[in-house]
């Protein structure tokens, strides 16, 4: 990470350690990574089966379906963002560490994106091809999904921090995060649909990039505050 050198090296090290730890854990339990991907693929294949195999209908619903499936898959994996840390006590270690908590929260969110968001983006062209999307649409979809899943990881980390340790946290997490995630869904799906109709897509991509920056700036602080409150 590009932390400036004059800040104590501990910051960057703690940040990287959080990310590395989560990736190693995911490596040892590949189910956590693969299950959301299967979920993503299955939800997207529900729609052709439910709507019908007609190529026109599929091309029309494709962008929306891919985005809804991505949103649901992200929610599925978000629930466990802090849960295992909470259960084995390493969340307390995180809270007690001398590093600033927002930085560690950012690390957790980025690790979540690397584990669940990035693989989803990589797999998404397969789904897109099955929906008969043209090539230029797939490019736009990859860009919007990259920004979108990163924003979702950051936004979702707030919700995961608020609901950690609560009963039925998974359902609650969806209730909290889904309305907040609507702008991402709207801009993501509509931009891909615009690309499919050969319209200008820059507005949507700029918006998603701006939203992502906003989330990168503010979400870690909200997550840190939520973690402190949940673990009082």
């Amino acid at each position: 990470m590009t932390e400036p050198d004059h800040i104590s090296p501990g910051l960057a090290r703690g940040f990287c350690a959080v990310i590395r730890r989560d990736i190693v854990l995911a490596w040892k339990r590949p189910g956590d990574v693969v299950n959301p991907l299967f979920f993503f693929a299955m939800v997207s294949s529900l729609f052709p089966l439910a709507i019908g195999p007609g190529a026109d209908e599929l091309a029309l619903t494709g962008p929306g379906v891919v985005w809804v499936a991505a949103l649901l898959a992200a929610l599925l994996s978000l629930n466990s963002l802090f849960l295992s840390d909470f259960e084995d006590g390493s969340l307390d270690q995180l809270l007690l560490s001398p590093q600033p908590l927002p930085l560690l929260a950012l690390g957790k969110a980025l690790a979540h994106w690397l584990i669940s968001g990035l693989p989803l983006v990589v797999v998404s062209p397969l789904v897109a091809i099955s929906f008969q999307m043209p090539a230029q649409t797939i490019n736009v979809m990859l860009i919007t999904l990259t920004f979108g899943t990163l924003s979702l990881s950051l936004l979702g980390s707030i919700g995961a921090a608020l609901t950690v340790g609560l009963h039925r946290g998974a359902a609650l997490l969806s209730l909290l995060i889904l309305p907040l995630a609507m702008p991402i869904l709207i801009f993501g799906a509509r931009t891909v649909a615009l690309a499919a109709a050969d319209d200008a897509v820059s507005a949507g991509i700029y918006f998603l990039a701006a939203y992502c920056m906003l989330a990168l700036t503010f979400a870690p602080f909200a997550t840190a505050a939520a973690l402190r409150i949940s673990n009082e």
């Binding site: 608020l162 909290l176 309305p179 709207i186 503010f218 939520a226």
Partner: peptide, 26 residues
Amino acid sequence: ASAVLALVGAVNVPIIHFSVEWWSSL
């Protein structure tokens, strides 16, 4: 906890309005 959520929501409300406006103008 709900105060944190309310504040996150308050930041999001204008964005939600804007995105819904944009979406329906399409």
